[in-house]
Design a protein around this nucleic acid. Sequence first.
RNA 1: CGGGGCGUGGCUCAGCCCGGUUAGAGCGCCUGGUUCGGGACCAGGAGGUCGGAGGUUCGAAUCCUCUCGCCCCGACCA
Length: 555
Amino acid sequence: MFQLSKKLPNDAVVASHILMLRSGMVRMLSAGIYSFLPLGYRVIRKISEIIREEMDAIGGQEFHLPALNPKEVWEETNRVAAFGDTLFQIKNREYVLAPTHEEIMTFHARNVVKSYKDMPQIWYQIQTKFRNEPRPRSGVIRGRQFLMKDAYSFDTSWEGLDNSYDLHDKAYRRIFDRCGLKYFVVGASSGAMGGTGSEEFMVKSSAGEDTVAYCKSCGYAANVEVAVSRVNGVERDSESKSIFEISTPDVKSIDELCEFLKIDETQCAKSRVYIHNEKPILVLMLGNDEVNETKLEKVLGGAVRPAHPDELKEISGADAGSIGPVGFNGRIIADNRLKNANNMFSGANKNDYHIGGIDFNRDITNVEYSDFRIVKSGEGCPNCEKHLEVFPAIELGHIFKLGTKYSDSMRAFFTDEKGEEHPIIMGSYGIGVERVMACSIEQNHDANGIVWDKAIAPFLVHLIGLNLKKQDIVDTCEKIYNDLNQAKIDVLFDDRDVTAGFKFNDADLLGMPLQIVVGEKKLKENKCEIKIRKTGERFDIVLNELQNKIKELLQ
RNA sequence: CGGGGCGUGGCUCAGCCCGGUUAGAGCGCCUGGUUCGGGACCAGGAGGUCGGAGGUUCGAAUCCUCUCGCCCCGACCA
């Protein structure tokens, strides 16, 4: 069976990982490779079944494709190179382990989907994917092998794709709702671009690898790389002082500068030097605002990197902490918040000196403005009057309009009404099945263990018989067990010969929604006890009313 | 790939710096008995290539070299 542990596994850090190990749901075989033990696999099956039902409901047909793929199929779309080291390659034959299945689905589609009459189609599977992650982490959340529900849509038109995409969007919401997850959707529509090319379904979690800005009032959600917020720029003082230099020994950071000069950070312009196309660029930010490198790259076009310390000295004549726009030899760009600013403080390009009285309009020529900020928690939502929260999140699912990328390169063509050939218009839609499980635990646990949502709990009822040397307790438990099973209620019977406390604590750790405790004292009154795991509420119930009460509580 | 940490019974770890009996503890496991509503107790017992290879030494868990694995931070991430 499964082994439970009260010990904290010292290799696990995030709650879901710790609890999955402690409760015997999974066991690690190798880095990023986990065996699902009977209890954990029941959860996977329940989640999979919910996914199947909702995929079938939008007309999906389930496939089961090979994980082992001939490399040549992947060469057709040039994705052997695109995936690079992430793609597992078999050593003794020209095979790869599939990291996803666009190629294979397209391979099948081009053989059978030949006419506009054959579409639309939605094909999906729930299958193991392999990715050679450089660094697996957080247990099952980022593994080298993981279960994914991947679906692909095939349409004759872009309108058809919109429709297939929309069906998936709705199905995904139903799936995650049914799994009891609190999630939100990050879409291209939330970004600056408008339109809907892709949406990510995210769950807030400290184990997350993405950072998102979210407004719970209006639902605005965006990856922090592209998120924007309502923040005020600097107000221009009516009087512009002239430039003056100040000695600021050992002052490196904006905080130190503010402390030293007794000024507010909104009077400071922070300098960051980046290298773009081998040339230095000075980026000015207001106060302690952080530079968003993604936004920077978008504005500049192409990759940037922070300048190394020795480069800084060479470029500006000073070390980090004393660099500023006045006298800087090179291109200067600034965040929108600094537009029209005057009486500002910044580095003097001379170690241990700063300059005050900087007027951006007067003293810095050719400065270009744009939004370069990383938004922070508490800032105004760009879409409503409320405020943004910034936090890490896990990507649970992704829906994506592929278009003709794969059908073009793999020549998956169909014939339209006029007899003309066109590439099939495709969409692709994924859900990380283990991630659903892990996220559910992340959202539903307490100090004692997991608190399963009944939709995906491995069992609905955890039956505990105390002192199984007493025959009447054993008999009662077996009757309850059989009756519940007959009523199609999944029940786990803890028939181990261990002390009561042991069983209680394990039951709390495993987290089935309801616990039934059969003990000697209450059995004498023909009663047993029900405990609701989520609330901790406990009460007695007469045995012949037990089943109805259980059914009622599971409603 | 860079930085840091760790590999010793099933689990958590001590021992290593400073080499020297038969490698320890707690938990778990097995046998018998007592106990039985929030992690009981008594008695007895089993279980270890000290991650691996090589080296130094009369002698290596301990020192040296290499190697494999795992975790954490960072880089990367369709």
